[in-house]
């Protein structure tokens, strides 16, 4: 890389840090971090990305690369501190009126609780694919896994979730939950 390329890449990473910031925070929250931990994790990820920008092999995969940095930070975080919170602690999206949508909120609370009962590997894949809409290849790159591993862990995670949420799934054959920005299934 020339000096000019270096500067360009570093500037692009700095710009990406600004734009990807909410996403990194949200992913960390979905991995079970508290809001403070998510903030720390996103911050640490951006700083490492700026420090190690020369290690970026594929500039087009910058986002996956940053999530992979965050994944490594998160693993270290879990190893060092063992402080994780449940997704139950995160605020639920939607109107704040306590007297509205209580049934829907109750379903979402159960879903979050079930997600927090998955193991870390399954939870990370499930949240990147289902919450962030990442492809299997992007997820594999972000978590430094093979696509086949992503698929098998995703299948195990979803099956576990299906077992945990059996009453919810069976009582909602015609779901009317307000999913807001549900991604259209291709």
């Amino acid at each position: 890389m020339t000096a000019s390329n270096n500067n360009n890449t570093k500037r692009r990473i700095a710009n990406l840090c600004e734009t990807i910031w909410p996403k990194l925070n949200r992913i960390a929250l979905s991995w079970g971090c508290s809001s403070e931990q998510a903030n720390d994790l996103a911050q640490e990820t951006c700083m490492i990305a700026l420090d190690k920008f020369q290690q970026l092999r594929k500039p087009e995969a910058m986002e996956s690369w940053m999530i992979s940095i965050m994944n490594n930070c998160h693993k270290r975080y879990l190893r060092d501190r063992r402080e994780v919170t449940s997704l139950d602690d995160n605020p639920l999206p939607g109107p704040d009126d306590p007297e509205n949508n209580i049934d829907q909120q109750s379903i979402l609370t159960r879903v979050r609780r079930a997600i927090s009962q998955l193991n870390d590997d399954q939870r990370k894949i499930l949240t990147l694919v289902d919450m962030e809409g990442m492809s299997y290849i992007e997820t594999a790159n972000a978590l430094d896994l093979k696509v086949g591993t992503v698929m098998s862990r995703l299948a195990r995670g979803r099956n576990r979730l299906r077992t945990l949420l059996k009453p919810t799934l069976s009582s909602n054959s015609n779901p009317d939950i307000n999913t807001g920005v549900v991604r259209k299934i291709k």
């Binding site: 809001s35 995160n90 979803r158």
Partner: peptide, 28 residues
């Protein structure tokens, strides 16, 4: 159908952005 509903439920459980305490990265 069940798998699709499960996927929608997971998406709906996505953490809300208002939980993000700092809105911007701090560059050193």
């Amino acid at each position: 159908n069940e798998s699709r509903y499960l996927k929608e439920l997971v998406l709906a459980a996505k953490p809300a952005d208002n939980k993000i305490t700092n809105k911007h990265v701090k560059f050193p």
